[in-house]
């Protein structure tokens, strides 16, 4: 029920938008967010974008995971 996916915004018209994930494209309401732009990734749940995905934070999490795979380096704190 709380299933939600990060989807890329492909079009914005007022508080409606189009989002894509792989081959799936759908319409979403953007009314729960401010300042969504084409190219952003948003977390989509039940026809609504709930949050804009923070790319910086995503990169940081992936970097921490990456560090775990290289134990010879300084381990992540």
């Amino acid at each position: 029920m709380c299933v939600a996916f990060p989807m890329r915004v492909t079009a914005v018209t007022g508080d409606r938008g189009r989002v894509a994930l792989g081959d799936v494209e759908q319409e979403v309401s953007l009314e729960l967010l401010d300042n969504v732009a084409v190219g952003d990734y948003v977390i989509v749940h039940a026809g609504f974008a709930l949050q804009t995905l923070d790319r910086g934070e995503a990169a940081e999490t992936l970097a921490m995971l990456g560090a775990l795979t290289r134990p010879e380096e300084e381990p992540a704190p």
Binding site: M1, C2, A4, S29, H45, A46, F48, L50
Partner: peptide, 10 residues
């Protein structure tokens, strides 16, 4: 209308 904080806003 079922669901938690995630769904209630919709």
């Amino acid at each position: 209308g079922i669901g938690f904080e995630t769904t209630a806003p919709t």
